[in-house]
């Protein structure tokens, strides 16, 4: 709801600037689609007929870190020079768990959980922290003022702050000093009908095996992720907060 209101606010600003007409012309001409299989034409806005989600099978996770490496490369997160170890960005990390009662050990990746009702979106003063209609939670860095309240609010430690000026960013993953950032489910890939980099890397690692990460539309009953969830279930981290996360875990 909040996100939609913000979009409306933007629209009003454009109309105010007399740009609405220009915008109409700008997107109207036929645009060549670069993929026939694309779920959404490039000139159409995303809507809530889909909700993107990821299912992670913690039983299969061997803590190989391939998802982390793939993420760092996809978003160019390794180009720091000054930030110390606790100041560097991580969109995704492997968390090692040890059950205090039983001693059972396991590992699983944790990233932005893409909540349906994200605390980071609630607290952001400018609306930079936002949830797209298709369920992807991200930072609109154009209006992020770097107050870091979203980092205080996130229950998953999913967000990082860019502590230094950076160069050589990946063109599809702009990021810079003074803004907060986090996993955006590889929104540039998803819009291009590709899977997030971590999912690709994980399933490559488990190529001999059954997939350990599923990406897909939670609204579509026939998607693989929905079938898997229906059959085997999928837990949320900190389900007690009632955030209805888009990232689910099996074997947790």
């Amino acid at each position: 709801m909040t996100t939609e209101n913000n979009i409306d606010a933007y629209r009003r600003k454009f109309v105010g600037g007399g740009l609405a007409a220009a915008a109409g012309i700008a997107i109207a001409p036929g645009v060549i689609l670069n993929s026939v299989a694309q779920a959404k034409p490039a000139d159409k806005p995303v809507d809530d007929s889909v909700r993107w989600g990821i299912l992670i099978d913690a039983n299969k996770c061997d803590g190989c870190n391939d998802c982390v490496t793939a993420c760092n490369e996809e978003h160019g997160l390794d180009n720091y020079t000054n930030s110390n170890e606790s100041q560097r960005t991580q969109y995704i990390r492997v968390v090692n768990l040890r059950d205090k009662a039983t001693g059972h050990e396991q590992a699983l990746p944790v990233m932005c959980q893409h909540c349906e009702t994200p605390p980071c979106v609630d607290v952001c003063p400018t609306g930079a922290s936002m949830r797209r209609a298709d369920g992807i939670v991200q930072v609109n860095m154009h209006i992020c003022i770097g107050c870091r309240y979203c980092m205080m609010a996130c229950p998953y430690k999913a967000r990082s702050f860019v502590h230094e000026a950076i160069t050589d960013q990946r063109p599809s993953s702009p990021r810079g000093k003074g803004c907060v950032e986090s996993c955006n489910m590889c929104v540039h890939r998803v819009d291009n009908d590709e899977q997030p980099a971590c999912v690709v890397a994980c399933n490559k690692h488990h190529a001999e095996d059954e997939p350990a990460m599923f990406f897909g539309d939670l609204r579509d009953e026939n998607s693989e992720i929905s079938k898997q969830l229906k059959k085997f279930g999928g837990k949320q981290i900190r389900a007690d907060l009632g955030l209805n996360t888009g990232v689910r875990y099996r074997g947790l």
Binding site: T2, N6, A9, V121, D122, V123, C124, P125, T126, G127, A128, I143, C147, Y149
Partner: peptide
Amino acid sequence: YYNFKSIFA
């Protein structure tokens, strides 16, 4: 830009 759900705003 105000997000009126934000106590910060």
